[in-house]
Nucleic acid binder design. Sequence first.
RNA 1: GCCGUGGUGGUGGAAUUGGUAUACACGAGAGACUUAAAAUCUCUUGAGGGCAACUUCAUGUGGGUUCGAGUCCCACCCACGGCACCA
Length: 873
Amino acid sequence: MKYNHKEIEPKWRKNWDESEIYRTGEGKDKPKYYILDMFPYPSGAGLHVGHPKGYIATDVYGRMRMMQGYNVLHPMGWDAFGLPAENFALANKVHPRIATEKNIATFKKQLAQLGFTYDWEREINTTDPEFYKWTQWIFLEMFKRGLAYESREPINWCPSCKTGLANEDLENGRCERCGSLVEKKPMRQWVLKITAYADRMLNDLDKLPDWEESIKVMQKNWIGKSEGANVKFEVRSEKLSARGGSASGGEVKSAIEVFTTRPDTLFGATYMVIAPEHELVEQLKDKITNYKEVKEYAEAAKNKSEVERAELNKEKTGVELKGVKAINPVNNEEIPVFVADYVLIAYGTGAIMAVPGHDERDFEFAKKYNLPVREVVKAEKKIDAECFSGDGVSVNSDFLDGLETAEAKKKMILWLEEKGIGKKSVSYKIKDWVFSRQRYWGEPFPLAYCENCKKLAEEHIAASEIDLKKVRSFADAQDDKEMGGFTLGELLNPGWIGNEELPVTLPEVEHYEPTGTGESPLANINEWVNTICPKCGGAAKRETNTMPQWAGSSWYYLRFEDPKNDLALVDKEKEKYWSPVDFYVGGAEHATRHLIYARFWHKFLFDIGAVSYDEPFTRLQHVGLILAEDGRKMSKRWNNVINPDEIVEKYGADAMRVYEMFMGPFSQAVAWNTNGLIGARKFLERVYKLKSQIPNPKSQTNSKIQNPNFKIDNLLHKTIKKVGEDIESFKFNTAISQMMILVNEMTAASGLSKEQYEALLKILAPFAPHLCEELWEEVRSEKLEVRSDKYKNLSIFKEEWPAYDPELIKDEMIDLVIQVNGKVRDTISVDAGISEEEAKKIALESENVKKWTQNKEVKKIVYVKGKLVSIVV
RNA sequence: GCCGUGGUGGUGGAAUUGGUAUACACGAGAGACUUAAAAUCUCUUGAGGGCAACUUCAUGUGGGUUCGAGUCCCACCCACGGCACCA
């Protein structure tokens, strides 16, 4: 009999389906284990062999947990909204819904043939109204608490996808999806206040010891917390200051507020810079004598894309605001003010104090425009020649002189706070999440705009003198009197009314191409746009933007716990049982995207009591890519894509599973190699053949001859130990190599007991489930003499994961290594229980060793128990 | 520029606490079986020297610590990933 995967694999998949062996119960008598893959976009191209790598790993892990007696949740679903799905639909002239349905069918078929343990009863789809009802619900809860706001600030705009984008959607200033250069464009947008959670997201990374360090570091950098101070610099027009600090400090028109992480260098600030977009350019219009020049520079800078501004990096440019001066508050010096595009409006206050002596960029600018450079932190080299940006001891800084940087910072902040010209402050690189897209294929916002309610809201705000900023810090305060029957979101965004009747379904349209006008295609459907106000019943218009692709994926993992609940996004009891996700596996590219968003939403859901723990994913592991055989990424463009269907057809799903787990360390990118795959297949064939080495059970006498072979038992139990430990730590490649060693030994051995073979099948089963199930059935049906149609109850996955015997993994003999002056000169096989004295004696008596020790004095002998003797001469 | 990860045979890679470097697999070479090929099986396979026992060198480079370093320390080079005028 040959190993015929084409017969075995479909047979067992059908059997698993019929016996419902992978149905996830609520069995609360068992410990739970929730293992999750990042769910895929069902793209039009289908799967290539790289996609399932992570799914295979979670499947292997999940199957082991199952055999260890856990109640395992290992679900799968579809992240089907968003640009890629829509762009595919546009290119192929089919409705996104139709295209998505078709793609899901393809993906499902492809996944099915790999033999995963998914419970399809729990399948979810983000484009299903029953699912996005709850995505909308979460948005609405955020809106009510003031975490969603309408903004008209300039944002990233992709001219090709014709939509606004979040910072997380960019790659080097280009659209992550299509590669177009992104422009800055003022747009009406819904924005989520992710910055309100920045500090918690940062601090709580410490609660995640089982996340890969590299991903935590990436998140830390993305959040980008900087501590320092905000300082106000007065601005005077030149005429005034020429009179020399005229009486009562009089006509101070305005001030520039800067953010700095180095308040200790304030004495070294010799000029100031504001960003081209800074409001002061307009405010000082009458005072600036070269306003035309300044305005021209600012306009030119605004029209540049971010990439252009960054590429022009080499040479700094700027224009001085003639006619105005700023006053350095620590020494009352008059310093010039520039507008320059190396200062970004979006970070800090959009303005800086320039300290050329201790900041590279300021130094470069100062050199170009001949501005004074002052040493205020003791530097090794001359400050005119090279700036020094490190920490040190303050000099030329009056009351800070002699203090270390950390101390100087503290003292300066105290001083500033005392004088009321500055205060301690924190800045983040992370920006609020631009949450609307001007596209069709996304969740509609559950919001309507009502002129009547707008008036009422504004009247209430005016009459009650409610301090919205204050309320904001008590986000869920809902005092009816104070709020006048409005939610915080409705007061912060007058006119916008939350629609509690969910879902707000996405209407069918004829034309779903993006309009490019800043409105989505939904704006053209009058009967949908015109609605009645959910609050007052008057005429209202729906919001026509849609949510970004990340919306559904920010909470989907909760829905798997209770996928059909129409009363809540997840039942509290079920959430308590299944959450958090114990193990989450997916691509590292999500480190600063999906994983940031999901943590943000989860923390919000925790705050409103919808979930019971404030971090969603306990352990996180990232998958390394599978590259094409040529070492490049698999892509249609290079024509190097390998389709899993062909691999399964030719070599079988089990061979593909084993190979993908064996090809290299899990988190590392490795190139596909079909010969390597064939190696995995050969290994499985050897396992198959091994069965014939078990003596026939019907001839009892025969089996007595086959004494359990200690050597095999020893190796078997070492293997059981190693495979278990390696799966646990996602080191599948070494788990498989250990099993190969075992199978090679078993093949060479004269006899093999059924028990030994069965143990091998159990530890291999998570990797090659079809084959092991088949062999298990064959071995068991012979032994138990049951007919094969009863196999339903015989699944190997209902067996217990084998335990290793600590006695059996002890070696009888060890190879004692003997070194002379650190070089290996001999290895001798000795009894494992050898004493130190004996070992040393044997070592010194070795002929090979004598060659190196004769005529020399033995100075020292180092003994490492059970390993080596090191002789120093 | 900053942060992170890594650098081991022809290739993918293994090596627990500092203790036999190159496990396992691929590729290559030789042989067996065969009319032949495929498949399968056996042996060889880091480099150099030697008939052999054996021996010298080798884990990106240069130093150091140690009886002993792929592993620890210092300096540097290279590759990949992330961030990037973030004050």
